[in-house]
């Protein structure tokens, strides 16, 4: 399956957290990416995530938060196998994600350092012993 962020989600992507922007990395993950990736996982299908298109650029935090959450919930091994990030225009994002986001969020997953959420989200999928479970894994509180 191919998903183009600018065409299929938003022309104008934001920054890391919903508290500070519309269409943030946090929003993208909870509103789209988790569900789409779960679908691909159950169909044993690679998700081709296309970054190109559109006039607006990405902030590093948007990509880090959305793809990092994916690593946290589905493990790095699964994400490396089933997520193919594509960018001819800005291939440096792929490098950045593979060299920084992947190891950083896998480390957080191992240590149990969950993502910070800045608003309430509906239930989302997480792999538990290789089996997807859908739950509200983090409950939003004002203090967050």
């Amino acid at each position: 399956m191919t998903f183009n962020i600018h065409q299929d989600y938003s022309e104008d992507t934001g920054i890391r957290h919903s508290k500070y922007s519309e269409t943030s990395g946090e929003d993208f993950y909870h509103d789209k990416l988790n569900e789409i990736f779960y679908g691909c996982y159950t169909r044993n299908e690679v998700l081709e995530l296309v970054l190109d298109g559109g006039d607006d650029g990405y902030t590093p935090s948007f990509l880090d938060e959305s793809i990092g959450n994916l690593v946290y919930d589905f493990t790095l091994d699964v994400v490396k196998t089933m997520l193919h990030i594509v960018s001819d225009w800005e291939p440096y994002w792929i490098d950045e994600i593979e060299k920084k986001t992947y190891p950083k969020w896998e480390e957080r997953r191992r240590k149990g350092e969950q993502a910070t959420i800045t608003k309430s989200h509906g239930a989302w999928y997480r792999l538990i012993n290789g089996v997807p479970e859908k739950r509200v894994w983090i409950v939003y509180t004002e203090e967050q």
């Binding site: 890391r16 590093p60 440096y92 490098d95």
Partner: peptide, 16 residues
């Protein structure tokens, strides 16, 4: 990838 620090790291400083 030689200019990657300018393409991503500098933008990280400026946007985070």
């Amino acid at each position: 990838e030689i200019l990657q620090p300018f393409q991503t790291e500098l933008l990280s400083i400026a946007t985070e």
